[in-house]
């Protein structure tokens, strides 16, 4: 069944491309590791929209979270005549295969969302990566909190000129957990705040665990001694918010407010922010990344000199092959 539909799709692809074959037409072939991923859904939509704006064409395939399927799809895309690839690898360590295929066909390849190791990426001069730097989510989170604290010096409940905070961390050893925990605190320090972590707990990205832990902290440390909560993701931040609400905090009374920050900008977090229960979050900018990936792909096909002339593309290329899209701070009132 899958074979049949795949063949049909490829046929449709070939037909579509053969109908409009100008020499420098941008024909993008793309594979997404799994269509049902909410983040990649937004990514895909952004790519489609940008392709339309560029007047190019794009075909996006679902790799169904299977690297073997993705490898086949890349072969099929290349033989159907695309002139640039945008690949969201299933397994970032398996990118060599895809690079080899692109090299053989002599077409550029842009990796997105999951960053292949640098030593693999540099084996082909037309391989690029568009994504966000993981540590930046922590930095932005810290800056967002710092900005609030500067405007609200009353946060310092014990007047010791330090920020006593609770850190709720994701799964132990996860790259995002390590980088976000480290860089959020670093950003606070850099903006002149003296952060003191009273307690750091691993809540495994989980709302329920975070809620139970936060509850215990409110009892053991005392809510009057907690001046902020930093969570590695929004779900844990929301767990902390529920625990605070159960203790009559963050319900609208400015006297009873503890700022809580997360990362992801998921719908529940935005909702909580609208109600003033949560201070802010950081958005991994799917729209911006999707747009940049397509722009880069189009520029590569048309052979623009993007490396020396920054303005022609609108994005800065780092180390000859990276475009970093910044995370975005989201606070109350914005959406």
């Amino acid at each position: 069944m899958r074979k049949v539909s795949m063949t049909a799709l490829i046929l449709a692809l070939i037909l579509a491309f053969s109908q409009c074959s100008f020499a420098d037409d941008v024909k993008i072939g793309s594979c997404i590791y799994r269509f049902s991923d909410a983040f990649m859904l937004r990514f895909r939509n952004a790519m489609s929209a940008e392709t339309e704006r560029e007047g190019a064409s794009i075909f996006i395939l679902d790799s169904q979270n299977d690297q073997t399927i993705q490898d086949q799809q890349v072969d099929e895309l290349i033989s159907s005549g695309v002139n640039v690839l945008i690949i969201n690898p299933v397994d970032r360590m398996a990118a060599q295969n895809i690079i080899d295929k692109a090299k053989n066909a002599n077409i550029p390849v842009v990796f997105i969302n999951r960053e292949p190791p640098a030593e693999i990426l540099k084996t082909y001069d037309k391989a690029y990566y568009v994504g966000a730097k993981a540590e930046e989510s922590g930095t932005e989170q810290g800056e967002l909190l710092a900005a609030y604290l500067k405007e609200h010096p009353e946060y310092d409940k014990n007047n010791d000129k330090k920020l006593q905070f609770v850190m709720l961390m994701g799964e132990n050893g996860h790259q995002d957990m390590i980088l976000r925990s480290e860089y959020s605190v670093k950003a606070l320090k850099d903006s002149g705040i003296v952060p003191v972590q009273i307690v750091g707990a691993i809540a495994n990205w989980d709302k329920l665990q975070a809620m139970n832990m936060m509850n215990a902290f409110i009892m053991s440390i005392g809510s009057e001694n907690i001046e902020a909560v930093i969570a590695n993701n929004d779900e844990m931040a929301l767990g902390a918010v529920e625990a605070l609400k159960a203790n009559d905090y963050n319900k609208g009374n400015p006297e009873m407010y503890i700022p809580v920050v997360g990362v992801d900008a998921n719908a529940s977090a935005l909702d909580a922010m609208d109600r003033g229960e949560m201070l802010g979050t950081v958005l991994n900018d799917a729209d911006g990344q999707g747009k940049a990936a397509v722009k880069l792909a189009a520029a590569l096909v048309s052979g623009k000199d993007i490396k020396s002339d920054i303005k022609s593309l609108g994005y800065e290329i780092t180390d000859n092959r990276y475009i970093w899209i910044p995370y975005q701070k989201v606070t109350r009132g914005e959406k």
Binding site: S36, D37, A38, E235, N266, A267, S268, A269, D271
Partner: peptide, 22 residues
């Protein structure tokens, strides 16, 4: 995972339901 939710955490719970546990 059904669209439009696509595996996002479910939030925006009605207060009358939340009361059951809170």
């Amino acid at each position: 995972d059904m669209p439009p939710n696509n595996s996002q955490p479910i939030g925006g719970i009605r207060p009358d339901f939340a009361q059951l546990g809170q």
